[in-house]
Design a protein around this nucleic acid. Structure first.
Length: 486
RNA sequence: GCUGCUAUAGUGUAGUCCGGCCAAUCAUGUCGGCCUUUCACGCCGACGACUGGGGUUCGAAUCCCCAUAGCAGCACCA
């Protein structure tokens, strides 16, 4: 009794249990190859991935390219790259356009079972009938007739829109979306970039066929598919197949970035965006460019979970996940934005040793040679300030002539600086700096950073008192960095 | 309009199935403090929610009804 009570209050960690998953799962991530993956895709990808890792099993990447209108030939590779970046435990890849014969064969079987029929009605007319729960004439034609028409579809006997295969459902179903929905259609144009075909399965058919054939046990997808799940059940029932377990998570609102593939593509074409990794976009490659780690994305998505309510995605939460990963590893450097040169009178040469990481002295330090003139951030020199301390160096006294400061050596004592409540600020030796441009979503900051930053290309470092940044490019003209987060 | 789903702090989330352990968990955020040669990290503290109204019950975040709000679908897209 006691144990039963305590079990009930045991703290759950991570995702909720999946029904029937104890013996392992087969799950899938099924993107449409129309462009690079974005944060929205990452949710489905990460959730399925986490469950496969939790229960063990197979994780199928299924490229759903049965609509040539929505296929971008370049996206096959893009999607694979994005998945590799995310680090999903994909165990196999299938592409639906490779499997058209499989779908054709199953379609024939379904017609033979009476679960589908070929409809040659005008689409508008069918819609009208459907609204009134009335069968179209094709519905009652003999199986042989449907089979014959099906063969004619495959043999180019019909043009686009002239014939389709419909699943026999329930014409009295209260939801018109359920009534005899289509399973195959003819498409004359555009040609498919990977196969020659003109009869294509609709998503509801190919998904059921593949989920069954590949042995998918659990499906986690957005609630925009709830109606599809109900439609698909008719197909399962016609075939007598077992239905997988479904979970539908709610809509996720994402603010601050562009997610629409068509909008992104248009912006790239007209030069508004620099590419698919422009940091104003919500693509995974844009996140990567900004220094967000794939683990952070996955962790954030798992924290969001599979709730069926609509939620708003929180950048704060993603940044917090990222900071947990990045803070222990990011080296620290000085970056002085909008700098001004300052000659420090009365100071002898000094060498500053600044730790690469404040909580890990073993990692070593940077060496900054002071020889008389430094770069300081103009904004930090507030008129009236009597003393500042240059971090890891020494104190500087400031005398003001109106708004014009002059600087002089103020001793090495940290205690003095504390007593004077002097701010500890960043600085750079004027003779050894690299120009640095820091790009943020709000705008660009120009300044200078330590030369050693050049060795951090591709890494996330922390510009002290500014935030974490990704070193994006290093060249003769300096360093370009993207702001990650505070 | 029709069909269906949902509603816990600024955000995300636990608890809801099987009513009492919930004056509601954890994270994030904001504010304050400690630590610190970063406004980072870490530590301490504060703030902040059961959509509203009825009902059932000794007892409701949890069950029922109504209202309200939001969302999804109603494609020869996925």
């Amino acid at each position: 009794m006691i144990t039963a009570l305590s079990e009930k209050h045991e703290k759950k960690t991570g995702l909720p249990d999946l029904e029937g998953a104890e013996k392992g799962v087969v799950m899938r991530f099924a993107p449409n190859p129309s462009g690079p993956l974005h944060i929205g895709h990452a949710r489905a990808a990460a959730l399925n991935d986490a469950y496969v890792k939790q229960y063990g099993g197979r994780y199928i990447l299924r490229i759903e390219d049965t609509d040539p209108k929505r296929v971008d030939p370049g996206a096959y590779a893009t999607v694979q790259e994005d998945i590799k970046w995310l680090g999903l435990g994909i165990t196999e890849v299938v592409t639906q356009s490779d499997r058209l014969p499989v779908y054709y064969d199953l379609c024939k079987q379904l017609i033979e079972r009476g679960g589908a029929y070929v409809c040659t009605c005008d689409n508008e007319h069918f819609k009208e009938l459907k609204q009134h729960k009335t069968a179209c004439p094709c519905r009652s034609q003999p199986v042989e007739k449907s089979l014959e028409l099906w063969q004619r579809m495959l043999d180019h006997g019909f043009k686009e829109g002239e014939a389709s295969v419909r699943i026999r459902t329930d014409l009295n179903h209260p939801d018109p979306a359920m009534r005899d929905f289509p399973a195959f259609r003819i498409l004359d144009y555009p040609p498919h970039p990977k196969v020659t075909a003109h009869v294509y399965p609709l998503m509801n058919f190919s998904v059921v066929a593949d989920d069954h054939l590949l042995g998918v046990t659990h499906v986690i997808r957005g609630k925009d598919h709830i109606a599809n799940t109900r439609r698909q059940r008719y197909i399962y029932d016609h075939f007598g197949w077992n239905v997988p377990v479904y979970r539908h998570y709610g809509r996720m609102g994402i603010e601050g970035v562009v997610l629409s593939t068509s909008q992104m593509r248009a912006g790239i074409n007209d030069g508004t965006y620099s590419g698919w990794d422009d940091i104003r976009l919500g693509t995974l490659r844009a996140l990567a460019r900004r220094g967000i780690l794939p683990e952070a994305v996955k962790n954030a998505m798992i924290a969001i979970g599979i709730g069926d309510v609509d939620i708003s995605f929180s950048w704060d939460n993603l940044y917090a996940e990222n900071k947990k990963l990045v803070d222990p590893t990011a080296n620290r450097y000085f970056f002085v934005p909008a700098p001004v040169e300052a000659r420090i009178e009365g100071a002898t040469a000094h060498t500053a040793h600044a730790l690469l990481h404040p909580s890990d002295a073993a990692r070593g330090s940077r060496t900054l040679e002071f020889t008389g003139t430094v770069l300081l951030r103009r904004a930090e020199l507030v008129p009236g300030t009597a003393m500042v301390r240059l971090k890891d160096l020494f104190n500087v006294k400031i005398a003001w002539n109106g708004d014009t400061p002059s600087f002089s050596y103020g001793g090495d004592s940290l205690a003095d600086a504390r007593a004077a409540k002097a701010h500890i600020i960043q600085w750079l030796p004027a003779q050894a700096t690299v120009p640095c441009t820091l790009l943020t979503q709000e705008g660009t900051m120009s300044g200078a950073c330590e030369p050693a930053v050049r060795s951090e290309l591709g890494k996330v470092v922390q510009f002290e008192r500014v935030g974490f940044v990704k070193i994006d490019a290093v060249g003769d003209d300096g360093v370009r960095a993207y702001f990650t987060h505070k």
